[in-house]
Nucleic acid binder design. Structure first.
Lengths: 399, 399
DNA sequence: GCTTAGAGTTCAATAGTTGGACATACGCCG
DNA sequence: CGGCGTATGTCCAACTATTGAACTCTAAGC
């Protein structure tokens, strides 16, 4: 890193300013760039030439009917980012470019009993296949975002204990994938990535403060504060699943009683329907049955919604986000679950905070996490790696 | 504002960099400034001369036994900021300089029945008196921070309904004080300012993520996230007083049942002791009695602590701050209340979040809010107003 | 007293932005 | 069809600000 406060750092900042402006608008003429960035036309002219020579930007000779406006846009393969998500049942991979376009996406079932090594193998293969299929330049891959369904220790990068992928505990997924793929890998948990995905491509667009609630086998929240994922000093922010709703409620796996999770997570909710609907139920099936009119499933989902609403009300009082996005299988239930959530929020949150809160279903479904991983790779690159031709690579023998 | 991205903006940034470095260290030689800021010695030389000529910095010819090191420090009257706090029972004013030194501080009782106009009169007089007493140059006053014990609408600056200062509802305190004092006034509520005060001068020093819990006639929290006060999009973040602890608990003034406030705030707690200890009890008195060994008061305070702990556990799960600071009268009870809080947190928060949380009493007592107001004035000035001689002034006929 | 080493200043060199002048291209209008 | 007006993008000189190197100055160590 060059010394801060020098002109060259200013120049870099201006480069990024231009790139950001172009990306936000998709395509801009130089004059427009000058106006939106506040830079002078002369400076923009220089910067655009520099970016064009570096290959990060493309100049199409003419665009709309004007005098002679050359439209500037990010070149499609200026830098490639990859998102990988180890989900509860699926492994997903997405490829995108720096223009925030998703080039390809693929999912395959993941055996929960697979060993960590097998999982990494599969992921590596799927990435390679997708890279080959899209025909992107392998050397243009600038970073990878990785999603894992469990707590990640910020310091060490170690995966904490997770009941979804037993046997993965103690592995260092980012390090492992980085070694295999030869590029930097950023890792985060599924709730945070879901939040990021919905923020950039889904129901959270245009909002700066957002909570993404993911209800699956557990309940987690990803918090976006001022446009950035908030992990907290210890990295465990967003543990909405274990706030206490009823001190004398059912015992939770965390050791407490009456956690939100005990009223909402699949492992606690599905047994309620066992006697009436059989033992092979999944959350997906319950949602489908509820949509088809099954009264028992409707009731259960409404109850879940009410409890989630209580938790969201707490969150809303404390953080006052402008939007709550519901993800996970449960989101498919639509109004069947959102209605009760809103009702609970309206009842338990203070009115001034609840009034301006919107509760929406996730727009991306199961894709939220992969796309979030993509966004993580983008954001962790700080938009600056694309400015010079030298994309960062991690030595294969990474230690 | 000059165009961003220009060299002059870079220059300003470097000026601020130097000022910040000097303030953080208290006093630095030029060579040290160069090392900590990363700027070259030549640049530092120029900047220091510029700042010295502008009067914002003082150069003492020699300091410690070295070769010939001139120590650079912020000049005491480079810029003056004032904090004003309308508290529940007191009006407090503090005067400080840009070096984060508190020059003077004074409090006087404030009649709760006083009209808003009377209150503003008193505040204006107290400010003028303190300015005169400290002998600071009136024209050097760069900004004022103002604390009010009630919700402030972010958009309009209007004070919402507050039961502490009835009759003030609907006034625009910042505008009013700005008109009277002729300088920009920033306003915020007491919990946020308490958080800021403890962060800068008190128990929160060195921490970037902090929750300040203020228990008084109500219960509020001020949240510091990544070193800045977090107000939320609607400005109502931190309403910890109205998270639900018991759905069938006592009815709260907010209309719900079992809010944290109904178990902890003075208005709900004091009546518990009426039959045994008389009706004229204040929270202060209860704390004093508890410290002297009164078993009833001890029990009540411990119960309050346990409930606060439940709320803090929720907050801790959601936000995972590294420190919680307890303010308000209740903090005087020390371990009598902190013990039960820690116990509840340990029981209800997830272990990984609770483990690294420290719960401390506020170090500033009733001064936290004024000092926070001071810090608010400093921070809202962005440290930049002191760089040129022209301090901002608001026209008397401010509209 | 000489040497040494660090502090601060000066000066030329360098990097980068800016305003203005200029060439270019297109639509409009006569 | 040609001139006019307007907006775009480029080039050049002027200006601003940082930097490295050379230089001076001071005090400590021997």
């Amino acid at each position: 890193m060059e010394t801060p406060g020098s002109q060259s750092s200013l120049h870099r900042a201006n480069l990024e300013r231009v790139v950001r402006a172009v990306r936000l608008a998709g395509s801009l003429t130089q004059a427009e760039i000058a106006r939106t960035t506040g830079l002078s036309a002369a400076t923009v002219s220089n910067i655009v030439r520099e970016l064009k020579d570096g290959g990060t930007v493309e100049v199409t000779p003419t665009s709309a009917g004007g005098r002679r406006a050359r439209s500037v846009s990010l070149s499609g393969d200026a830098g490639i980012v990859i998102g990988v998500d180890f989900g509860h049942t699926h492994l997903r991979v997405a490829i995108g470019n720096l223009a925030h376009q998703v080039l390809a996406e693929e999912a395959e079932p993941l055996d929960v009993d697979a060993s960590a090594a097998q999982g990494f193998d599969r992921a590596e293969q799927l990435v390679e296949r997708l890279v080959a299929a899209t025909g992107v330049d392998r050397t243009k891959v600038a970073g990878v975002g990785l999603g894992v369904p469990g707590p990640i220790d910020v310091e060490s990068g170690q995966l904490g204990s997770t009941s979804i992928l037993p046997g993965w505990t103690g592995t260092k997924p980012a390090e492992e994938m980085s070694r295999r793929l030869g590029v930097p890998v950023q890792v985060d948990n599924d709730a945070n990535l879901g939040a990021l995905g919905e923020l950039v491509w889904g129901s959270g667009r245009g909002v700066k403060d957002l909570a993404y609630i993911k209800v699956a086998s557990g309940v987690g929240a990803g918090l976006v504060i001022s446009g950035k994922i908030y992990r907290g000093p210890g990295g465990t922010a967003g543990e909405i699943g274990h706030i206490t709703l009823d001190e004398s409620g059912p015992v939770c796996r965390c050791g407490n009683r009456g956690c939100l999770e005990t009223f909402t997570a699949a492992r606690y909710v599905l047994p309620l329907l066992q006697s009436s609907h059989g033992t092979d139920l999944t959350m997906e099936a319950v949602v489908r049955l509820a949509r088809d009119g099954d009264p028992g499933c409707r009731r259960v989902i409404a109850d879940v919604g009410r409890h989630i609403g209580s938790g969201v009300a707490n969150l809303c009082n404390l953080l006052n986000p402008s939007r709550v996005v519901l993800g996970g299988d449960l989101a498919e239930a639509g109004e069947l679950v959102l209605g009760p959530i809103r009702e609970s929020v309206g009842r338990y949150a203070i009115p001034s905070a609840a009034r301006q809160l919107s509760v929406l279903p996730g727009a991306l479904g199961g894709r939220a996490e992969v796309l979030g991983a993509l966004a993580l790779a983008l954001s962790e690159m700080g938009d600056s790696t694309l400015l010079d031709g030298t994309l960062p690579t991690v030595a294969p023998a990474f230690t």
